[in-house]
């Protein structure tokens, strides 16, 4: 039975959108925690922390997100642990976001002038205090445009979760297309929803970049 794309379908898409937002939010929050840890390891004076973090980043940056998803999704199953797809997807996206945010933030930490840590060191502030009160607050400011840029990538990247069978926005669109045979309308609406989510963020990020460029002149 073929039906016409209507309000019910639109609401179904909104439900899908909700899951998309949720995956992105979990990945971003998890990635922020993991990314901070990775970034701190990357700038650590200890080689034992620096190198593993470096390799981890290289592995995640050098492989497709879809492959990472498959690996975690099926990998956890092979280990004999029975997890629901939601957990598997969260873990995969969190790892992915941790690696990328870790690398972005490493660069930002290193962009804070060395004079800042030297002045803090001269005041006898401990490594923890130097990071917490001097370096990280300044690095955070520098990192905002790139971090938001990555969040946009992450939101769009959640569409890959549809391939492992998770019903987010993209997957909802596929279901509705199968029922209505109106791919142009359905995917058009799906696209607009992604756009409505991402564009304000991109806009914000660009504006912030301009403002920061003006401030540092």
């Amino acid at each position: 039975m073929v039906r016409i794309f209507g309000l019910d379908d639109f609401i179904l898409l909104l439900v899908g959108l909700q899951w998309t937002v949720l995956i992105a939010a979990v990945a971003f929050v998890g990635g922020a925690v993991g990314g901070l840890a990775i970034a701190l390891c990357r700038v650590s004076p200890k080689r034992l922390l620096r190198l593993p973090a470096k390799y981890l980043i290289e592995i995640f940056q050098g492989t497709p997100l879809l492959m990472q998803l498959f690996l975690v999704y099926f990998g956890i199953g092979i280990l004999g642990i029975n997890v629901n797809p939601w957990v598997a997807i969260s873990v995969a996206y969190t790892c992915h976001a941790s690696a990328f945010l870790g690398e972005i933030w490493r660069g930002c930490i290193q962009a804070v002038p060395t004079g800042q840590s030297e002045a803090a060191f001269a005041l006898s502030l401990s490594y923890r205090h130097r990071m917490r009160y001097i370096v990280l607050p300044q690095a955070l400011r520098i990192s905002l445009p790139a971090t938001i840029g990555f969040l946009v990538q992450l939101i769009k990247g959640t569409s890959l979760a549809s391939i492992v069978g998770f019903t987010e926005l993209m997957r909802s669109g596929q279901y509705i297309t199968n029922a209505t045979y109106q791919p142009m309308i359905v995917y058009g609406v799906v696209g607009l929803m992604y756009f409505a989510l991402c564009w304000p963020l991109s806009f914000w990020s660009t504006r912030m970049e301009h403002r920061m460029a003006a401030a540092s002149r």
Partner: peptide, 19 residues
């Protein structure tokens, strides 16, 4: 090498408080 994200006063108070 003043800390640009802190006020003059906060610059002067940080180390005595934390160290």
């Amino acid at each position: 090498n003043l800390f640009p994200h802190m006020t003059v006063l906060a610059n002067c108070m940080l180390a005595p408080m934390k160290v």
